[in-house]
Amino acid sequence: MALGTDSAAKRRGGRGKDSPPAAGHNQDILTKAYREMLLIRRFEEKAGQLYGMGLIGGFCHLYIGQEAVVVGMQMTLEEGDQVITSYRDHGHMLATGMEARGVMAELTGRIGGYSKGKGGSMHMFSREKGFYGGHGIVGAQVALGAGLGFANWYRQNGQVSLTYFGDGAANQGQVYESFNLAALLKLPVVFIIENNKYGMGTSVDRASASRDLSKNGEPWGIPGEQVNGMDVLAVKEAGERAVAHCREGKGPYLLEMQTYRYRGHSMSDPAKYRSREEVQKMREQNDCIEMVRKILLEGGKTEADLKVVDDEVKAIVQDAAEFAQTSPEPDESELWTDVLVETR
């Protein structure tokens, strides 16, 4: 597999392998990114463990490997901007600042969860944090995300909608209907394709006749970039260009994040469609967290400094896991609530 050619990355302003991120880059940003990415990873590992213990049921799609995408993009946002994504959504929730406790308790189906246990892994929302789900129908969130951008356009509030979808959704018809609408009305929407190379078990090469997904918006005049989605700084830089473009009223922007998921599509996916070597190679050579960790250490942080972060993250996740197991199940009366908003 190739994570975009170096020349392609350079042409579009990204960094190739020859020019690693400067060690002097803002250590505060990287420290923050390190912490956020690690929180997602540890959270997801814990979720996988709780699933294994039967505490989480149904579908559970882990984000492990892709953390740099959502963490880098979130750094480009302002208060009031919106985020929407598919069902591989736990990382997005944590990145928008939703509490680990509420997310984990939703995974275990408890009243302390963001949806009071009624949504589960794929359906969580926080209007306060600008997170609009959490959608289980592949591609549906793309039209909905255009609608978030539409609302910004209608209100003329200068906010931007980040609309994430996977390579698996990239050939859905409504994606192109949404591209057309967003371009037609110049909606402030950053469309972000998280290309993790596989839509469930089908590799993108077998599913998409379009080879460079960043060009999929070209017929509508939507500028696109391929980005090394394993490099949080590259993500952030591209994200800043995209968000600025939207805020200036120039219409939508498309980012293809070249990333990789280490785990199966969902918990019951043995991932036999790719080799263990392929996964190991990504983990060892391209891991987004290790990349930042290395820069931080080269830039003057000590192992002890990072251990403090590691421990802090571990404690949050442990606390979330305990909360998610001790928070009660929803009261039986909850079966009947929230079907309709009462009008009288």
């Binding site: 909905l144 539409f150 409504q174």
Partner: peptide, 12 residues
Amino acid sequence: GFTGMAVGAALT
């Protein structure tokens, strides 16, 4: 597409 867009706007 436009129905999804309208629903997204309504969610806000």
